[in-house]
Design a binder for these strands. Structure first.
Lengths: 214, 214
DNA sequence: GCAAAAACAATCATGATTGTCTTTTATTTT
DNA sequence: AAAATAAAAGACAATCATGATTGTTTTTGC
């Protein structure tokens, strides 16, 4: 591999250690992105291999060169979606702000995006698709666990009353995700979003233990 | 028709005014039920005409005699699901009990059933299926409107503060439906259901205007 | 009874999706 | 420069869902 750079004096490819590997990685990424876009645009069940190939702008033959079959591609897409979610999550939680308001808004913004749409498409499909469930459920559980652990880190003073802490988390999760899913299915009155968010924040604050000194 | 009874001395069919009409209606009902069961068992996208025919225990040819094509059957199934929802809803609301607790539990029980599962399958599918949306969205909207009007009837004393009333309704809807959907997708911790329900009831009570006299 | 109509069953042609296989083109490697 | 390897495209057969067509049995109305 090192010899390649010495031998070819031409510019361009000479600088890369391995043009093929880079090209392959880029193509795989293109395919994974196309898969995610298809899930968002057409839904899981209509995310077919010809459609993904078309969305990625390449032949189906080329596609199947990089992923041995359709479900290998889907598996990679799920892994990428999971990473996306975790990245967005870390970004939200890591910003050193521990205020309820900020965190509620951050999670709301996150699940208002298309990544959540794609995830819910997969989650509902996995209800009746065992193979898909086997891939997806571990990712869902890891996310929930990290969510919970991160919340514990953010609110250490709350750990004395675990029941109220758990309730605040469960409430947040179900209200926000409920709104997000209802929005996907013509079931959300947008005018109610802001009042509900405000109420949720108020309620979480009410569940917090009183600080010993202000 | 009357002559038939005279002619055939055998019991059974003689008593019905029109055997064919009854048979046809029964067969159509069987097909519609089979369609709903398929949506619940296999999901919307895997509810195919051969599968429905098999579930109904008849040939696909017979099936297509009663419904000109697959989407006509789906349309009938959606109408039936809509009726089911409205019936369950009327039963809940009509039981002359106007307590928050009772109503919350009634709606929770309702959306914990399979009818809601089927409806959410359809609702999410309609996100990316325009034809399905054209059939489904009107039913969804009618249900929401009736839900709202029924709530107004049940809580006339609340109408002075419409903002708080609307908030209570929107909260109920999103919390309960959020839980129901999360339960469908491995996202609900069953241990949190009861605490969330209790909290929701408490919060709705808190939003109610104070009665002038106790 | 008997002809018409309805219920039911079976088959056919079409289009879509899937995975495999072969061919062509580009890139490494020696 | 030639052989080897990887990327990309295309062709292929198998499966499945769909709607239409045809044939068979049962019910209906005279």
């Amino acid at each position: 591999m090192a010899r390649t750079a010495i031998k070819t004096l031409k510019p361009g490819p000479a600088l890369e250690l391995n043009v093929q590997a880079a090209k392959s990685a880029a193509t795989r990424a293109r395919l994974i992105d196309a898969t995610i876009r298809c899930i968002i645009k057409h839904g899981y069940s209509r995310t077919t291999t010809p459609r993904v190939a078309e969305e990625a702008g390449m032949s189906r033959g080329a596609m199947l060169h990089h992923f041995e079959n359709g479900s290998a591609l889907m598996q990679a897409a799920i892994a990428e979606l999971h990473e996306k979610r975790l990245r967005a999550f870390r970004q939200s939680a890591g910003s050193s702000v521990h205020e309820v308001h900020t965190l509620v808004r951050a999670y709301w913004k996150q699940i208002s995006g298309q990544t959540f749409t794609a995830f819910h498409e997969l989650a509902l499909a996995s209800r009746t698709d065992k193979d898909l469930a086997n891939i997806l459920v571990p990712a869902q559980e890891e996310f929930r666990v990290r969510w919970y652990l991160q919340a514990i880190e953010l609110f250490p003073e709350w750990q004395g009353d675990r029941a109220r802490f758990d309730l605040a988390l469960a409430l947040s999760q179900n209200v926000l995700e409920g709104m997000a899913i209802n929005r996907l299915t013509h079931g959300l009155d947008e005018r109610m979003v802001e009042p509900i968010l405000i109420d949720l924040e108020r309620q979480i604050e009410a569940l917090k233990p009183l600080p010993k000194k202000v």
